[in-house]
Amino acid sequence: MIRRLMKTLVGAAILAAFAGSVAAQDSKVADELAKYREALADGNPADLFEVKGEGLWLEKRGPKNASLEQCDLGQGPGKLEGAYAALPKYFKDTNKVMDVESRLVHCMVTLQGFTQAEVTKQWYSKPGKDSDIEALVTFVGAKSNGMKINVPATHPEEAKMAKMGEYIFYRRSGPQDFSCSICHGQDGKRIRLQDLGNLTTKAGAGEAMRTWPSYRVSQGTVWTMQRRLIDCMRQARWPEPNYLADSIIALETYLQKTATGTVMETPGIKR
């Protein structure tokens, strides 16, 4: 872990050095950023979340003293391989399209006997208070590594969710006239120095979706896709959505459908 930390610090030093070199050209900027990302990727702190997530999956917990080993994430009870890559998905037992997080919460409630409020109280980490959900999602996500994202949204409920996600993607409102599409509807753009993916294309959506969950260096923790999208809405200067809200799952369905066919490589690491 200390070795990993050192590598992260080296990465930060590279970024700092780069930030100081004022006269850099665009291409040079891109090169230096690529080096920074490379340094970060070598030793991803999210690996620790993955290990913790596996522990939480196997441990008997909750009023029912049960593990999550019988949790059905869409491929059958306990089947984790490729499950993340095929979510969100329609589930007959709840009659809902669910993403990995809503499904994990569902399992913790039905199998382990927790209340929804208990399980979602700490849905993201705060300093000194780690989130079990982040760890579980990291563990489940890694079980899809090397597999193609596979959300064709062929079930009518999935197709509807994907279309509703598209609606939200283009919906402009707020004091800055923002929509997702403003920043993520074109190829090859940057906000400040941050590259922006064109999420309306397979390549762009793939580059984003196939690397989540991701460790956020600036936040010091893993971010799930729910966290990522809820923060996008904060950046758009909108009010705060509910965790696990249908509008977030709809956006995920739209993006996963667009990204279908790209190969998962998680946990990612981002600035």
Partner: peptide
């Protein structure tokens, strides 16, 4: 965007 589900999508959002 949203096609025939635009109204539902607005409500859901």
């Amino acid at each position: 965007p949203g096609g025939k589900y635009a109204k539902d999508a607005e409500q859901m959002f």
